[in-house]
Design a protein around this nucleic acid. Structure first.
Lengths: 149, 149
DNA sequence: CTTGACCTTCCCATGATGGGAAGCCCCACA
DNA sequence: TGTGGGGCTTCCCATCATGGGAAGGTCAAG
């Protein structure tokens, strides 16, 4: 299987497959005489595993941890659960953070006429005239979301 | 006012102030004879404006838009409201996305013994054995969150 | 034999931020 | 007057995960 076929079969782009190899997330693949990488079912399975972990918001580092646990037949499920619950907590923290932003913005937007007049409480708030909603920096978040908007 | 004082007064790091200048978000500042940047109250006000917009999850690009609207005395508040509501929608989409992840992960964690045995439904799911919860890539999100975990 | 679709490596860009080096500059203190 | 420490300057690099694209090799079908 060439890298293109492995990409199709796993849903991971060829670029990313090479990158994962480069950073040591997957083992360097064997090559054919023409220097093409060769993949088998097992590699595709691993790539799909990684892709699913990414879809669930795990970072590549966490995916690597989970991958090692997956391949460790004697692992304890507690170790896996720990990674998962830590990730849940992280997600929930970020959700709460964004909900706080939404709440503030909705309030400001509600107070804003949204018409042809220049008067705008949203800008007033950003400028720091009043209650200063944008003053409290929300808890920062590690960025580990897929980005391809 | 030197850049350090402007930084203290605005809460924006000196590094970032120079960066904002570099990307054209703020005007290049005048210099003293020793080549130090000089800031006044207005610049500090602008920096605080940007910081608040960032705290509300706006990207620097959106902050620039809002900044221009802020400085445009004849703007229509509808234009501002539009930026804000688009941002709210974006935040809500990402919140829903992460809530989906949390839901899936909680279910998997709930089913996982979390003990010393190797059996683990979380890994089973990632490996694609069953219902394939991690299969559906959640809607991707532009990354515009503060990151400094 | 040509054409087009692969593959390879290498470099660059994203967005927002921090780290750090090398080299000025200035003020306070001995 | 010398010196030390802290500020300022620019410049380069790193992060994280991903894509774009160039330049060149390879292969299979026409």
């Amino acid at each position: 299987m060439n890298i293109g076929e492995a990409s199709n079969a796993s849903g991971v782009s060829a670029k990313m497959i090479r990158y994962y190899e480069e950073i040591g997330l997957i083992r360097p693949m064997g090559r054919t005489g023409n220097n093409y990488r060769v993949y088998g079912e097992e590699e595709v399975h691993i790539l799909r595993f990684i892709k699913r972990a990414r879809n669930l918001g795990f970072s590549l580092e966490e995916a690597e941890t989970l991958l090692k646990l997956w391949q460790d037949k004697s692992r304890e499920s507690a170790a896996v659960k720990e990674v998962a619950t830590a990730h849940i907590a992280d997600l929930e923290r970020r959700i709460a953070e964004m909900q706080g932003m939404v709440k503030t913005l909705k309030h400001l937007a509600h107070c804003c006429g949204g018409d042809t007049r220049p008067n705008c409480p949203i800008l007033d708030d950003l400028a720091g005239d009043g209650s200063a909603a944008g003053d409290k920096p929300v808890a920062p978040a590690k960025n580990r979301m897929k980005q391809n908007a």
